[in-house]
């Protein structure tokens, strides 16, 4: 039986540091949208999560 975290934000990728506060997970700052998408994709694949878009320039990777 494998155990792991689910329904948990593993990482936040943002273009605007003012939009995210607090901790609990690492926050990555991207320079532009292209970099943001690339970083999110890599993080999602490595962490086994799914990329979600808050539609305000903040992406986060969540494990379901």
């Amino acid at each position: 039986m494998s155990t792991g975290l689910s329904e948990f934000i593993l990482a936040v990728v943002t273009r605007d540091m003012n939009k995210v506060k607090g901790g609990g997970c690492p926050i990555f700052l991207a320079a532009d949208q292209q970099e943001q998408e690339k970083m999110s994709l890599y993080l999602a694949r490595i962490l086994g999560g799914v990329v979600h878009d808050l539609e305000n320039g903040v992406y986060f990777i969540c494990k379901h």
Partner: peptide, 20 residues
Amino acid sequence: DGSILKVNDVVIMNVGLPQT
């Protein structure tokens, strides 16, 4: 609908990446 995937009027999930 933005980043929200829908089938007809039912919300399925939020999809972040444009290529997905």
